[in-house]
Write a protein that binds this DNA or RNA. Sequence first.
RNA 1: GGGCAUUUAGCUCAGUUGGUUAGAGCGCUACACUCACAUUGUAGAGGCCAGAGGUUCAAGUCCUCUAAUGCCCACCA
Length: 912
Amino acid sequence: MDTIPSRYNPKETEDKWYALWQEQEFFRACPDKAKKPYCIVIPPPNVTGILHMGHALNNSIQDILMRYHRMKGFESLWMPGTDHAGIATQNVVEKAIAKEGLRRNDLRREQFIERVWQWKEQYGSTIIKQLKKLGASCDWQRLRFTMDEEYSKAVVEVFVRLFEKGLIYQGSYIINWCPRCATALSDEEAPHHELQGNLYYLKYPYKRDPAKFVVVATTRPETMLGDTAVAVNPKDKRYKKAVGQTLILPLANRQIPIIADAMVDMKFGTGAVKVTPAHDPNDYLIGKKHGLACINVMFPDGRLNEQAGDYNGMDRFEAREVIVEDLKEQGLLEKIDPHPLSAGHCYRCHTIIEPYLSKQWFVKMKLLAKPAIEAVKKGKVKFYPKRWTKVYLDWMENIQDWCISRQIWWGHRIPVYYCNQCLEAGKSKMSNPKLKINSKFQNSKHENGIIVSRSKPEKCPKCGSTDIYQDEDVLDTWFSSWLWPFATFYWPFDALNAERATQNANDLKYFYPTSALVTAPEIIFFWVARMIMAGLEFMKEVPFKDVYIHGTVRDIEGKKMSKSLGNIIDPLEIINEYGADALRFSLISITSQGQDVYLSKDRFEQGRNFANKIWNASRLVLMNLDPGRARADLCVFFKKESLSVVNRWILSRLYSTLKEVERSFSEYRFNEAANLLYSFFWHDFCDWYLEVIKADIRNTHNQVVMYKVLEKFLRAMHPCMPFITEEIWHLLPGATDSIMRQSWPHIQEQIIDKKLEKEAESLFSVVTHIRNLRAQLGIALDQAVVVSVYPHTVSKRKLVEEYASLITNMAKLQTVYSLSHNKRPVRAISSVTEDVDIYLHSEGVIDADKEKEKLVLKIQELRKLAHAKEARLANNDFVTRAPAEVVAKEKEGLAELSGTLARLEKMAKELA
RNA sequence: GGGCAUUUAGCUCAGUUGGUUAGAGCGCUACACUCACAUUGUAGAGGCCAGAGGUUCAAGUCCUCUAAUGCCCACCA
């Protein structure tokens, strides 16, 4: 046993055990009717991703839940996979090919997609490897990818079903357009951020009298070339006469009307607003109401187009400057006021989005949202912490239609086909039903010529023409992710042979609804809410019962960790330096429910140190088990009464701790569980128990108990720290199998004895007091001293006398005398516990004044407490209204305090 | 403009349904390398629980207001 090194080295153990677990298929989960299912689907990381601290936290939590439930006897499935992450991945690959001097459009679509697949093959498994490093116990045989062939079938199926149900429609609306990514974005993908802008006051001259103007205020003057009206509030007296008149749009020299609309806020700006239906969602609504034309003045890349005349080809922000300059020259700029405004930003590349009129596909959400709202209200899905319920409900109750088409190449192609012949026949002038520049306002459905189909049709079902082409757009990534809890089981099974179809249907039936979803608050809308809707729509059942929302990982200054800020702490670096167990434990121990996590690197030392502590305590235990002792000898059961107080104490502490840990896990209080285990092991087991029994460590009872406690602790600890617990498990005598396959320790309630815990701890407190006295006098440890104690109760006297050697050993004494009288010995300094007077005999001179001062301070402190209690007990309201047990406790406390006080006062008198 | 969260030791944070001497880790001070562990041990210092009101026998905990910080949502051009 002395071959065990004194430091735990995670590098020597982690990969070894992970390989074994995988080889033995311990992560595999298959329906087992004898067992209850437990299932978590992983939030699929982006296939382009690399593991960051957020992942580390997220997956540590999931792995703890998985391992815990597995040990608790559940058939436990952790479904792994990755997300194709349309825009994100496309951007990454575009950057990669840019290094070869290529742009996306230099390649054909198929070529580009081929490049993405290549990229995926090469780098797509990075994050999976990293999750393995972390210890993630996913059923890797089930690894899924949102662009898998079968998964794609699910996506198409869902699109078709929703279309047939009338919940998917195509239409021209103002959407969020990212000019850099050249695609539409959903509202959720275009979060608003405040930025410092200007409010430009522009003068639009009247046609009748060009010397007179209406002044409009705008933050985006470059869109003025697309203005088709100026609107005022009908109640606005300033503009009473103006309504109906015609203005000359400067620079463009077009005539535009002044219209009245209640949407206009009289208090803002000048009360007159320029109306640009093609470039602003509100203006669009006004335009629609008043039948205004939509003039799109921009190319999809954010440059002004030919509609902008002289400004054609100019970038939108450059054009802003130039247009303002030109207006100024013409005397048509009244003023510029600084004005903070908030604008949508592309969540992928952070470019300011452009509200842009285009034809897109949408999902009607109201109908889907309804049952999903109900489900949460009825508690079929529960959020932890609870407060997210409200966030979810607020969003769901105000849900907007979901723009699902994206003008990129990497993703699920929209299963919509167009028949050229029917389109022609349908008098549609659109040669390309996609982006129209400067088309007149349209809201047609183009029912004619549109074919929505699960597979590419050979010919048009209407006219039989083969002149058919597929919609160029792909679907929003989340339109596939929202199916994750059931599509990962190969739903709708069509792509499978009969045998596999049956098997997967069984799996789905067994594991769905899944048990818990663990994720970050950022994606409640993107993902969680939509999964609930999809689950209810297609499975007729919620996708998960619990949603645990953990905090965001931030750096020590509270900033979100991100590459661009350069404040990343790389989890792999931490694993390399401190070990995966240390990483996991440290993360868990500081994640109180739903709070953000502020991290600095030194936090991981705690985990590392704890691992080392476990390692060394185990060493001590192992080194002191009799060599021949078989496992069976160590599993014997002793009658409680035959065990020493200390043995009974540690067992009681073990089970009370485990009981609390269980409760913490069930409430998703991981930090609490971690800290309970930590404090039990370090302080109770190591600091007291092992130190106490060291003197007689080969005693049979002691061997059995220390073994038992260690063994159970390891099992309890395994979900948090899987590697080190496995390593030590195999060092235990007679170890077979893996700790993963053991059950989580059963809690033996009958062994929990709170009174006994207190008694043992009062014994320990005598030791602490003596150590304190030693430290006060600066007595070195090798200087054996003599102590006398006077216990004030019979039972304590018995305890102290029985465990005199414990006190002697732990406080490094020569002897401890139990006094039969409570008279202060000469040449001694004193201390008092609740019911034991302690005197440490000193050879040297005792400073009586100092000793007295100490006593007086203590007396004062206790008196204050006693007075407070007296006052409380004297209060009739308290005595009559507080629960009897609280009053009783208070009385007890006062009695104890009074006793102690009396003793202290007597001591003080003796000193005088 | 709405909503949520946070404010407790020098630092980072725990503190369940109110119950009475407010805890942990790190850091700090003093002492200690006798063989489980210096990634350690022993002892200690350190808190008007953001502020002001209120409810209650009892408030870090519940209510109201205020302040600071952070986050989310929202079409003031």
